[in-house]
Amino acid sequence: MNYRRLFLIGVPYVWLLALFLVPFIIVLKISLSDIALAIPPYTPTLHLSDGWEGLKDFFSKLDFDNFLFLKSDPLYWKAYVSSLQIAILSTTITLLVGYPIAYGMARAPEEWRATLMMLVILPFWTSFLIRVYSWMGILGKEGFLNSALMWLGIVDEPLTILNTNTAVYIGIVYTYLPFMILPIYAALEKLDVSLLEAAEDLGCTRTTAFWLVTLPLSRPGIVAGCFLVFIPVIGEFVIPSLLGGSNTLMIGKILFEEFSSNRDWPVASAVAVLLLLIVVVPIVLFQRSQERQAEAQK
């Protein structure tokens, strides 16, 4: 092995090891330790220099109290369930909103498509925080939407939308919509139109042709889009804290509050470990489906 190769492999490797894997192991460790050991100045209790004795000592001190605490306090339990609920429902809504847009883009005249693509990508480059914030001015009691509805005489008094779960759903659908549109559009654009013509020649109506041909063929795009929305939404923090209310329970928000206001790091770490266990399942499923997709194309 020459030095050049060693250097090329070593630098990024060591960087990721030190700043990704090691910190992660620390979280695992702290989630299993007492609060007294983990508050600053935090002292790691594992001394490799002590050899086997140190290792034995280390493992005997680990405890699962933080996880038991999470189990006994219904707040965490509810937060997990409601994060999953919010993620599932908002992914479904995003799909229902995103599919017709992607479909329209794929049907649009050829020369528009590049511009339409850019219009979908542009919000992605715009600050996430600002896009979430823009809804605060719209959904508030004196916000744009309420003023418009009252001016039109649809409602007599302002609706409470901001700081409820409805606002969280709107925020999620809005910010994650490009992630849904792009993969579905990619799948629909590749679709061979002659298949649809064949279906219609054989007596399908346009609607049945859509259900029997277009929809099944766009499935890879739908699956990818749903995962791309679902995975980040579970751990979402900005949207529930700006648009949600005090009764919006999402695990990312709880973790952040546990860390910043309560300073309870072992519990925050235990929440993080459990959050990861929840996210790992969809991530692995997504990986698998992507690999299968890649193989099918070969």
Binding site: V22, I231, L255, W265, A272
Partner: peptide, 20 residues
């Protein structure tokens, strides 16, 4: 992993490293 990992976890773990 860092691409799909919730940011709150990456943030917390880096913070704990820097303190350690």
């Amino acid at each position: 992993a860092p691409i799909v990992m919730p940011e709150v976890i990456t943030g917390l773990s880096l913070l704990l490293l820097f303190i350690a």
